[in-house]
Amino acid sequence: MTLALEVRNLRKTFGGGRTLTGRPRPEIHAVRDVSLSARKGETLGIVGESGCGKSTLARMLVGLLKQTKGEIVIEGKNLSDQVGDPAAFGRLIQYVFQDPISSLNPRKTIREILEAPLIHLLGMDESARKARITELFDAVNLRDEFLTRYPHEFSGGQAQRIGIARALAASPRILVLDEPVSALDVSVQAQVLNLLADLRKAMDLTYLFISHDLAVVEAVSDSVAVLYFGRVVEVGRAESIFSAPRHPYTSLLARSAPIVGRDLARTESLAVELPDPLRPPSGCAFAARCPSATMVCRDKAPAIEAFSQDHEAACHHPL
């Protein structure tokens, strides 16, 4: 199977350099040497908690943010030098935002919003645009009469479907979905998730599905990458990574998710503290919270290792 997307040693550092008076400015390593790949037609889930760098990674992948180091290859094209120019990315990879309402300009009609990518990325004339918009609206199950309305008139679920239509307008091959359902109520979440699954099949799309919700990621993904503190700590197949995790952090995540009927999990000591991004620990970032951490974990960051064909983890003492 061919790869839709490949990322090699991607790194993003914010801050750094020196101030006018020569004092060094603090650096934050939001993404540290991330390597990932997604096969064509698959969904790659990316899981992590706030501050793990998942949104920074997503913004680099669609060209909204320039990487500090590393390469991005999309559909065989190396776009590493064009990062920071979303127009170069726009026809290959698009983004669906977390907050459906705030990702739509409140002063534009839905038609104007959907026309923008058709004009600027594809240079379509008016009749072609009209046909394409009808087609898109049909694909996301919305009625044509919505086109003349403004974003505030829609519910969260409808607005998210408009956001998906906008992302699909320029016929990209890959969609980056950044927490696409976490702002929606449970009863509406499934409507959007099922639509996404249908669209993927119909249009042969590749998804990068970013979420903090393990159950959602497991339900929609083929493979899953777990991020902690800017690094990939584990990659595996969706069906096995949470049931047989190799990295202690993945295991902690899986045990922490509240599940109906399961007793409250005493997952870790109540007094643990999360690592400080301004003063990152020298070894494994998870060592301070890890039950099996030893000296070597605190000194040396573990490299990612393959355990089987589809399962890799970065841990000195894998489970």
């Binding site: 679920g157 499934a190 409507q191 699954a197 497991e218 339900a219 929609v220 969706a238 109906v260």
Partner: peptide
């Protein structure tokens, strides 16, 4: 009943999800 059916739980594997139509 239908709201509980919408709640996803870890360990269910890949599946078609249930939704409540309408608002």
């Amino acid at each position: 009943k239908r709201l509980i059916a919408c709640v996803l739980e870890l360990g269910g594997g890949r599946r078609v999800l249930s939704a409540i139509p309408g608002l």
